[in-house]
Simulated assay, not measured.
Amino acid sequence: MGEIRLEINELIEDLKFDEKGLIPVIVQDYKTGKVLMHAYMNEEALKKTIETGEAWYYSRSRRTLWHKGETSGNYQKVVDIAVDCDKDTLLLLVEQIGVACHTGNFSCFYRSLKGGASFIFHLENLLRERKKTLPENSYSAKLFREGKEKILQKLGEESIETIIAGMNGKKDEFIYEASDLLFHFLVSLIEENVEFREIIEELIRRHK
């Protein structure tokens, strides 16, 4: 069966809000598919989200509506709203402006039991902080201090070493060198003021 398109009134009337009039919301970046955050809406927040095209939530701690990005500038432009099969959870597909998490991470789910893709975004944010603060005894800070030419030189060296490792056919060696390459690639992105997310978006565009 295909997707079912709902009308706004039908959507709201059909939902199962809890005893406090709330419904959980999972927020997902529509370009990367990454889960950004978990929040709650009441009926008013949902209506304002639909009317404005930007995400509004209900804060259980403050007991009030809040407009995502109102103070930080990290707005969420709503692309679509989906309902789960039990009608008690919403999925918000959004275009995330800036980052979703108050910690500065793109997603609130930046910590992972087994690492994974979320670690790339964590490492990216860490490297951006290194460039800003330039702490002593930091290899990445040393690269940023030396500038673009040195960074690109290291990127080239790591590329060659990764190719050589691949030609040698040793998996462990290839993984080691490819990890160095990815690290220096992230450093070069930050030096060029490019976000890793933008690379993903370009790959998605090519795939489409």
Rank of each mutant, 00 (worst) to 15 (best):
G98K: 05
K114Q: 08
A82I: 02
S138V: 02
L203N: 12
H102K: 07
E51F: 00
H38F: 08
A165R: 11
R111A: 00
K131T: 02
E158N: 12
K87F: 05
N9C: 01
E173M: 11
G21W: 11
A55G: 11
G21N: 09
R197G: 05
D18M: 10
N193P: 01
I200T: 09
D84Q: 09
K31M: 07
F185N: 10
F144C: 12
S61M: 01
I50H: 05
F109V: 06
G69Q: 04
E198Y: 03
G73I: 00
R62K: 15
K48S: 02
F144I: 11
T89F: 02
E146K: 14
Y139C: 05
D18P: 12
L134N: 11
K148C: 04
I26T: 13
I199G: 06
S138E: 12
E202R: 13
T32A: 06
E136N: 14
I97C: 09
V94C: 10
I120L: 14
K48N: 14
H122P: 01
S107I: 03
M41Y: 11
I163H: 12
Q28V: 10
S138Q: 04
N42G: 08
A82Q: 13
E124K: 09
L11E: 01
K68T: 07
E161C: 10
D86R: 14
G156C: 03
E54L: 02
I12C: 06
V83S: 08
G69Y: 00
T64D: 15
R145P: 06
V79F: 02
E54A: 01
F109T: 04
D88T: 03
S140N: 08
K132D: 07
M41G: 09
A39C: 12
L143S: 08
I23Y: 12
N105D: 14
N105T: 01
E201L: 03
Y110N: 03
A82G: 08
H207T: 07
L134E: 15
I200R: 07
D18L: 13
D29H: 05
E124T: 00
D86F: 00
H67N: 08
F119H: 04
T52W: 03
I164W: 01
Y176E: 13
T52H: 04
F17S: 09
K87P: 00
G21A: 08
T52A: 08
K171W: 13
T52S: 15
F17E: 10
N193K: 15
A165S: 15
F109A: 01
R5D: 04
G169W: 09
L22N: 11
F17W: 12
G98S: 09
Y176I: 02
A82T: 04
F121Y: 14
E70A: 15
K150N: 05
K150S: 10
N9V: 00
R205I: 07
C108I: 04
N42K: 13
K68Y: 00
R197H: 05
R206N: 12
L152V: 02
T32V: 01
P24K: 14
V35S: 05
A100E: 06
V79Q: 14
W66H: 11
E95N: 15
K150E: 11
E158K: 10
T32I: 03
D172Y: 12
